[in-house]
Protein backbone atom coordinates (compact mmCIF):
# COMPACT_ATOMS: atom_id res chain seq x y z
CA UNK A 1 0.00 0.00 0.00
CA UNK A 2 2.85 2.37 0.81
CA UNK A 3 4.13 1.86 -2.69
CA UNK A 4 0.90 3.07 -4.17
CA UNK A 5 1.81 6.69 -3.55
CA UNK A 6 4.99 6.36 -5.53
CA UNK A 7 3.24 5.57 -8.82
CA UNK A 8 2.91 8.69 -10.93
CA UNK A 9 -0.13 7.93 -13.07
CA UNK A 10 0.07 11.07 -15.19
CA UNK A 11 3.69 10.29 -15.99
CA UNK A 12 2.81 6.75 -17.11
CA UNK A 13 -0.04 8.14 -19.18
CA UNK A 14 2.47 10.41 -20.94
CA UNK A 15 5.15 7.75 -21.26
CA UNK A 16 5.81 6.92 -24.93
CA UNK A 17 5.45 3.19 -24.24
CA UNK A 18 1.97 3.69 -22.77
CA UNK A 19 1.04 6.02 -25.58
CA UNK A 20 2.16 3.40 -28.09
CA UNK A 21 0.03 0.76 -26.34
CA UNK A 22 -2.93 3.11 -26.24
CA UNK A 23 -2.69 3.90 -29.94
CA UNK A 24 -2.22 0.35 -31.08
CA UNK A 25 -4.97 -1.00 -28.87
CA UNK A 26 -7.59 1.68 -29.56
CA UNK A 27 -7.31 1.47 -33.33
CA UNK A 28 -7.41 -2.31 -33.26
CA UNK A 29 -10.32 -2.58 -30.82
CA UNK A 30 -12.45 0.02 -32.58
CA UNK A 31 -11.85 -1.57 -35.94
CA UNK A 32 -12.98 -4.98 -34.68
CA UNK A 33 -15.90 -3.54 -32.76
CA UNK A 34 -17.29 -1.53 -35.68
CA UNK A 35 -16.85 -4.43 -38.08
CA UNK A 36 -18.63 -6.87 -35.79
CA UNK A 37 -21.55 -4.51 -35.11
CA UNK A 38 -22.03 -3.77 -38.82
CA UNK A 39 -21.80 -7.46 -39.69
CA UNK A 40 -24.30 -8.42 -37.00
CA UNK A 41 -26.92 -5.86 -37.99
CA UNK A 42 -26.72 -6.98 -41.62
CA UNK A 43 -28.59 -10.10 -40.47
CA UNK A 44 -31.84 -8.50 -39.21
CA UNK A 45 -31.63 -5.87 -41.96
CA UNK A 46 -31.21 -8.54 -44.63
CA UNK A 47 -33.98 -10.74 -43.24
CA UNK A 48 -36.32 -7.77 -42.84
CA UNK A 49 -35.70 -5.74 -45.98
CA UNK A 50 -34.14 -8.19 -48.48
CA UNK A 51 -36.03 -11.45 -47.87
CA UNK A 52 -35.79 -12.39 -51.56
CA UNK A 53 -32.00 -12.45 -51.30
CA UNK A 54 -32.13 -14.62 -48.19
CA UNK A 55 -34.41 -17.12 -49.96
CA UNK A 56 -31.98 -17.93 -52.78
CA UNK A 57 -31.05 -21.61 -52.54
CA UNK A 58 -27.36 -22.35 -52.86
CA UNK A 59 -26.79 -25.88 -51.60
CA UNK A 60 -29.84 -28.11 -51.85
CA UNK A 61 -32.35 -26.61 -49.43
CA UNK A 62 -29.62 -24.51 -47.77
CA UNK A 63 -30.31 -20.86 -48.63
CA UNK A 64 -28.39 -17.59 -48.31
CA UNK A 65 -30.21 -16.76 -45.07
CA UNK A 66 -29.08 -19.94 -43.31
CA UNK A 67 -25.52 -19.59 -44.55
CA UNK A 68 -25.45 -15.95 -43.48
CA UNK A 69 -26.78 -16.78 -40.01
CA UNK A 70 -24.16 -19.54 -39.67
CA UNK A 71 -21.47 -17.13 -40.87
CA UNK A 72 -22.38 -14.85 -37.94
CA UNK A 73 -21.12 -17.55 -35.60
CA UNK A 74 -17.92 -18.01 -37.58
CA UNK A 75 -17.31 -14.26 -37.64
CA UNK A 76 -17.92 -13.90 -33.90
CA UNK A 77 -15.50 -16.73 -33.15
CA UNK A 78 -13.05 -15.31 -35.67
CA UNK A 79 -13.06 -11.93 -33.97
CA UNK A 80 -12.55 -13.58 -30.60
CA UNK A 81 -9.63 -15.52 -32.04
CA UNK A 82 -8.02 -12.51 -33.74
CA UNK A 83 -8.36 -10.37 -30.63
CA UNK A 84 -7.00 -12.96 -28.23
CA UNK A 85 -4.05 -13.78 -30.48
CA UNK A 86 -3.11 -10.13 -30.80
CA UNK A 87 -3.66 -9.46 -27.09
CA UNK A 88 -1.66 -12.50 -26.00
CA UNK A 89 1.20 -11.77 -28.38
CA UNK A 90 1.48 -7.99 -28.41
CA UNK A 91 -0.58 -6.16 -25.80
CA UNK A 92 0.32 -8.38 -22.86
CA UNK A 93 4.03 -7.92 -23.43
CA UNK A 94 3.70 -4.16 -23.78
CA UNK A 95 1.55 -4.01 -20.64
CA UNK A 96 3.98 -6.16 -18.67
CA UNK A 97 6.85 -3.85 -19.50
CA UNK A 98 4.96 -0.77 -18.37
CA UNK A 99 3.84 -2.53 -15.18
CA UNK A 100 7.43 -3.56 -14.41
CA UNK A 101 8.64 -0.02 -14.84
CA UNK A 102 5.66 1.58 -13.09
CA UNK A 103 7.57 2.80 -10.05
CA UNK A 104 10.41 4.26 -12.10
CA UNK A 105 8.40 6.34 -14.53
CA UNK A 106 8.37 9.87 -13.12
Amino acid sequence: MAQEQTVNWAAIDNDPRFQALHKKKSGFLWGLMIFSVVYYFLLPIGAGYFPELFKIKVWGPVNVGILFALSEFIVAWGIAFIYSTRANRTFDAMTAEIAREAYNIK
Binding site: M33, Y40, A47, A69, A80
Partner: peptide, 21 residues
Protein backbone atom coordinates in the same frame (compact mmCIF):
# COMPACT_ATOMS: atom_id res chain seq x y z
CA UNK B 1 -38.03 -22.29 -38.25
CA UNK B 2 -35.47 -19.77 -39.49
CA UNK B 3 -36.58 -16.80 -37.37
CA UNK B 4 -35.89 -18.71 -34.17
CA UNK B 5 -32.35 -19.41 -35.28
CA UNK B 6 -31.79 -15.82 -36.35
CA UNK B 7 -32.99 -14.71 -32.94
CA UNK B 8 -30.23 -16.72 -31.26
CA UNK B 9 -27.37 -14.94 -33.07
CA UNK B 10 -27.59 -11.68 -31.09
CA UNK B 11 -27.08 -13.52 -27.82
CA UNK B 12 -23.62 -14.64 -28.96
CA UNK B 13 -22.56 -11.44 -30.74
CA UNK B 14 -23.23 -9.66 -27.43
CA UNK B 15 -20.06 -11.23 -26.07
CA UNK B 16 -17.89 -9.41 -28.60
CA UNK B 17 -18.68 -6.18 -26.76
CA UNK B 18 -17.93 -7.88 -23.46
CA UNK B 19 -14.63 -9.24 -24.78
CA UNK B 20 -13.31 -6.16 -26.56
CA UNK B 21 -14.46 -3.35 -24.32
Amino acid sequence: GYDGFMYSVGWLVAYITVLLL
